[in-house]
Write a protein that binds this DNA or RNA. Structure first.
Length: 539
RNA sequence: GCCCCCGUAGCUCAGCUGGAUAGAGCAUCGGACUUCUAAUCCGAAUGUCGCAGGUUCGAAUCCUGCCGGGGGCACCA
């Protein structure tokens, strides 16, 4: 139980007491932060919910609720105020704030973390770019997102597997092999082949001339994958599972799943092709599994892959896809149903595109022309921290405009540095105080002076952290953590401006502020870590 | 034609399972450095929340239609 949970429970209980026989759904009773500080530390909408059901004016209901809370919260509650259409605003005592900070500090490095009684296993598959070229900026967005989401889910108690699906099978791989060979032979690369500069270095020309096409394609593919892994590593992203599409064919997994679907009566033959009845499970129309030419479609691999994931016993399968794949959601869900599974266990998060501005003749993401901006270039230009924060500060379902020239010029203005700077400042204060003094400060928390408004505001922001993380995890929304980090940094900076820490008399106040600073430092560091951004002690 | 996402300050974007005077960063203007780190702070200015209806005590938020931008609608991957 966090201090806010306790407060929220008290409000729910008081609401139930006022409601009497009248039904109120506990979830709709909110503990909120008022829009302006002078409206109180916290507020609740409960009177607005109760009023129509009790047939009484909201402001009158608020008075009754205030009475209940005064009794149950005792000294923690300084006073209440009824405001606006019938909000009840709560003003909490310094004593409540002291308890709250003690609670934050006792959670230590696990503040905001959650422990699930029955940990749910989640597989997060992301990036999964074809191993036929370097990663572009769209992949960068997916990499930053998938990794941050994984970090957040893990911190919130889930067992997370990060997975990359390697499309190392099929026509695109063959085309890559052909492109490499053409270059090695000094011949023109086919129009629909791969034309980027990187193609030349994948396999030594001499070797490329000797190998058979299949082996060459495989080696070129492996070389590409090595480049991709290196780029991701540099970006701070690591995967637990690298899953090969080719392996699904080599182990017979594809045939097995086709048999299984056939046995369930989910397939049929028409025009010489094998179809899956996806339309029976919510898709617009049925889909081809085996073409009349006898070749499997990529969709068939996807099904075998899904079945493999299902067999590994995850509670949840998260797929992170680009906006161009949204049309496949219905059929993947349908497959889940056709296999006898729960379509809701399969979750597909669509990442909108990154639209590149200001770089003449180049695009953010388009493939094959070899004219797109790569993840490596992005990192070269602005660095990992700025790139990740920039990409993570936006919701996944909004298209991002990226002006690379502007981004480079404004790297120094990236909000990430503001957050890191706040962290470095705190680190500096704590270092000056020395670890002994900081340790002593944690023993007896009790400011002598009344709390400054900035101290209260900073503490309220800290207390919001667990809730923000819960929202970010549930809504698959890492960008909320980025927003939070910035707000917390701003709140600390205001505290820094208003409340001197070192050498303040009386000594108990210095100790209190050291403790508050320590909690702020840990929380900023944690928020940044969950985004994959570093928290330097010096800048 | 059908489906998905978006449209909020000059720019980039939060806020969207309904609440109080709609926010942040950048840019602009005016101030503050013998600092617990000025990569900072203070102040000013900036809005038909795309448009039109509807639901509601209350709508940026929910519903419908329209307009604009992006993406998708293969026996391609």
């Amino acid at each position: 139980m966090t201090p806010l949970d306790t407060l929220h429970d008290a409000i729910r209980a008081a609401t139930a007491a006022v409601a009497g026989e009248v039904e109120v759904t506990p979830e709709s009773v909110k503990l909120e932060v008022p829009p302006r500080a002078e409206l109180g530390d916290y507020s609740t909408n409960a009177p607005l919910l109760l009023a129509p059901r009790l047939g009484a004016p909201a402001r009158e209901v608020a008075q009754r609720l205030a009475g209940e809370l005064a009794a149950s919260l005792g000294g923690a509650l300084e006073r209440t105020e009824v405001a606006g259409p019938g909000f009840l605003n709560l003003y909490l005592s310094d004593g409540w704030y002291v308890e709250a900070l003690a609670s934050v500090l006792s959670a230590n490095e696990r503040f905001g973390a959650a422990t699930l009684k029955a940990p749910r296993a989640v597989d997060v598959e992301f990036v999964s770019a074809n191993p036929t070229g370097p990663l572009h900026i769209g992949h960068a967005r997916q990499a930053a997102y998938g990794d941050a989401l994984s970090r957040i889910l893990a911190y919130r108690g889930y067992e997370v597997t990060r997975e990359y699906y390697i499309n190392d099978y099929g026509s695109q791989v063959t085309k890559l092999g052909e492109s490499v060979r053409a270059l090695a032979l000094g011949e023109p690369v086919a129009p629909d082949g791969y034309h980027g500069d990187y193609v030349d270095g994948l396999v030594p020309a001499e070797r490329a001339r000797e190998l058979d096409l299949e082996t060459l394609a495989r080696e070129a593919c492996d070389a590409c994958l090595a480049l991709i892994r290196a780029s991701l590593e540099r970006f701070g992203v690591r995967f637990d599972v690298w899953f090969s599409e080719r392996s699904l064919h080599e182990t017979g997994a594809v045939e097995r799943v086709l048999d299984a679907l056939g046995a369930r009566g989910e397939t049929y033959t028409n025009d010489g092709a094998l179809w899956l009845r996806t339309s029976a499970h919510g898709d617009d129309k049925d889909r081809v599994l085996v073409r009349s030419s006898g070749e499997h479609t990529y969709f068939t691999s996807d099904i075998a892959y899904l079945e493999d994931k299902r067999s590994r016993g995850y509670d949840r399968l998260v797929y992170v896809w680009g906006a161009d794949h949204h049309g496949y959601i219905a059929r993947m869900k349908a497959v889940c149903g056709a296999l006898g599974g729960d379509p809701d266990a399969l979750e597909i998060v669509i990442q909108q595109f990154v639209h590149l501005l200001g770089v003449e003749g180049r695009t953010a993401m388009s493939k094959r022309e070899g004219e797109y901006v790569t993840l490596d270039e992005l990192v070269d230009e602005v660095g990992v921290d700025a790139a990740r924060f920039f990409l993570l500060a936006r919701s996944h379902d909004t298209t991002v405009d990226l002006d690379l020239d502007l981004a480079v010029r404004e790297t120094a203005e990236n909000p990430v540095y503001y957050v890191q700077y706040a962290h470095a400042r705190i680190a500096s204060i704590l270092a000056r105080a020395g670890s002994d003094r900081v340790a002593a400060a944690l023993v007896a928390l009790a400011p002598v002076e009344p709390l400054h408004a900035s101290e209260r505001a900073l503490l309220r922001r800290l207390l919001a952290f667990p809730g923000e993380l819960a929202e970010a995890a549930e809504r698959r929304a890492p960008h909320r953590v980025a927003s939070y980090a910035l707000e917390l940094a701003q709140e600390f900076t205001a505290f820094y401006r208003d409340c001197h820490v070192l050498g303040v008399e009386p000594r108990a106040t210095e100790s209190w502020r050291l403790a508050l600073s320590l909690a702020a430092r840990r929380t900023i560091a944690r928020a940044l870590d969950l985004l994959g951004v570093s928290a330097p002690a010096q800048m």
